[in-house]
């Protein structure tokens, strides 16, 4: 029989674990945006080797499944002498992967900004760095907002994979509860609905933010 009582009893614990899901996806998204902006700048740079590196980065991180990236980082970091907690490794890896996708998002939105703006900024004597930070990036972020929100939702879902490196977020927590209560159906469904709720909230927040930003 489907037991709602099991869900009610374990719901607070699952919600508590959602903190880690949110932590990993939000930090991963921020890291991805910062790195993604750098990669995007490299992809649009006049120097050929920079463009090549950016293309290689994007191709690698989009071509390798995140699960493999996470395990590779988990096993590789200690070998090359970097001893960090699993949580840090997970956030770093998720962010590296998000950067590849966000770089493409930013590149797409930069193309939508009229060329004249960067030229005008350069003409009145702004340094290239200022043109990026003050003219191009703010607008690219605004134009790319729907895609960035979408990426954040993807990250919330992708964060379920960090269970393989032992971080107790929603999925890992639901695994232990399911093992302890012998009620996998109820517990995993409850976990699924928590993810769904988080994503619906993010999507709605994104829509509100979008409306605020478009004048």
């Amino acid at each position: 029989m489907f037991s709602f009582q099991t869900i009610i009893d374990n719901f607070p614990v699952l919600l508590g674990a959602a903190r880690y899901t949110l932590l990993i996806s939000v930090l991963g998204c921020i890291e991805g945006l910062i790195l993604g902006a750098l990669i995007c700048a490299a992809a649009l740079s006049p120097k050929l080797w920079l463009r090549r590196c950016a293309a290689l980065y994007v191709s690698f991180f989009r071509g390798v499944p995140l699960l493999i990236q996470l395990l590779a980082a988990y096993y590789l970091l200690p070998v090359i002498g970097i001893n960090v907690p699993a949580l840090v490794a997970a956030v770093l890896t998720v962010g590296l992967c998000a950067a590849a996708y966000l770089a493409e998002v930013l590149r797409g939105s930069l193309n939508a900004i009229p060329k004249g703006q960067a030229e005008a900024a350069a003409a009145i004597g702004m340094a290239p760095r200022d043109v990026w930070v003050r003219i191009l990036l703010p607008q690219a972020l605004k134009i790319g907002l729907p895609a960035i929100v979408n990426e954040l939702i993807l990250l919330v879902k992708a964060s379920s994979l960090v269970t393989v490196v032992g971080i107790v977020e929603i999925t890992r927590m639901s695994q232990s509860i399911a093992a302890a209560t012998y009620r996998p159906l109820e517990i995993y469904l409850a976990a699924a609905f928590i993810y769904l709720a988080i994503n619906l909230v993010i999507a709605q927040a994104g829509r509100i933010l979008e409306r605020r930003l478009t004048v």
């Binding site: 964060s159 994979l161 269970t163 929603i170 399911a178 996998p184 995993y188 769904l196 619906l200």
Partner: peptide, 13 residues
């Protein structure tokens, strides 16, 4: 709206 991994767990377990 839900992770593929969780869907698999629901289905398999």
């Amino acid at each position: 709206g839900t992770p593929f991994l969780v869907q698999l767990f629901v289905l398999y377990y």
